[in-house]
Design a protein around this nucleic acid. Structure first.
Ligand code: ZN
Ligand code: ZN
Ligand code: ZN
Ligand code: ZN
Lengths: 149, 149
DNA sequence: AGAAACCCTGTAGTTACTACAGAGTCAAGG
DNA sequence: CCTTGACTCTGTAGTAACTACAGGGTTTCT
């Protein structure tokens, strides 16, 4: 199996495959006489595993760790749950902040109705005003002297 | 106002401020005799605006465009709504995929109960199995020959 | 034989910062 | 007067996970 076929089979760009190899995630395959990489089915499995994890937004460094578990099945699994827990917590945190973001943006969107000049655009006004506010929730405004806890 | 004070006032790291200047988002301020940057209140306003937009996850290139609108208030505002619309669409798309992700991860998490060796961990099994599936939803498996549309 | 399509290595670009390295400036304390 | 510490300056390199060449060699099809 050459790199292009592997890429086709796994739905991955060839450059990405070479990148995974360089990063130590995918073992360097044998080379055929012409120097082309020659992959076997284990490579396809491993690549699919990596892509599946990436689809779960698991960072490559953690995928690396998971792959080590796959290869050393006698290790204690405690770290696996923790890895997933961490990932889940990250996703939930991001979800929460994205929901807040959606609210902000859609309320912002409502500020502009018909066409007009930028100087009278409610969106722009709101953005400028919000940036002025002391109590702006979204970005970390704070009085450095008054509230130095 | 020196760069450190500006950073304090806006809640932004000094390196980030210099980065914004280099990127053309924050105008280069005057320099005092010793070569230190000397900022005024307009810089603080502008910086706050940038941070507010960034908190809305608006990319710097779009923040740049918004700043141009702020400076040319006579321009047509049509592009502003569109910018926000685009941003909103991106956020909603990300929100949708994150929700799916959360579902996957939490179901995955349920696969592992008590402690055991990695070879018997339901999480790991599931990850490996899912990567094998033809119909894996999350990452783009596809039969290149059979379904070549 | 010649062109298209594939493969190789290595480097640089993307985003939005963050982290130095190495040097200069300034106020306060001993 | 000298030193220490906090601040500032420039410029470069690193982060995550790819993506996009440049400049070559090889295979395959016609
Ligand atoms: Zn998958
Ligand atoms: Zn408008
Ligand atoms: Zn804000
Ligand atoms: Zn387990």
């Amino acid at each position: 199996m050459r790199i292009g076929e592997l890429g086709q089979a796994a739905g991955v760009d060839v450059e990405t495959i070479r990148f995974y190899e360089k990063s130590g995630l995918l073992p360097a395959p044998a080379r055929s006489e012409n120097g082309y990489r020659a992959y076997g089915s284990t490579h396809l499995e491993r690549l699919a595993f990596i892509r599946h994890c990436r689809a779960l937004d698991i960072p490559l460094s953690e995928v690396q760790r998971l792959l080590e578990f796959v290869e050393h099945p006698n290790a204690d699994c405690g770290d696996i749950d923790q890895l997933i827990d961490t990932q889940l917590a990250k996703v939930r945190a991001r979800l929460k902040s994205l929901k807040a973001l959606e609210k902000q943006l859609s309320s912002l969107r409502g500020r502009c109705g018909a066409k007009h000049i930028a100087g009278e655009c409610g969106i722009l006004h709101e953005l400028v005003a919000a940036a002025h506010k002391e109590a702006c929730v979204c970005h970390g405004h704070f009085e450095p002297k008054t509230l130095a806890t």
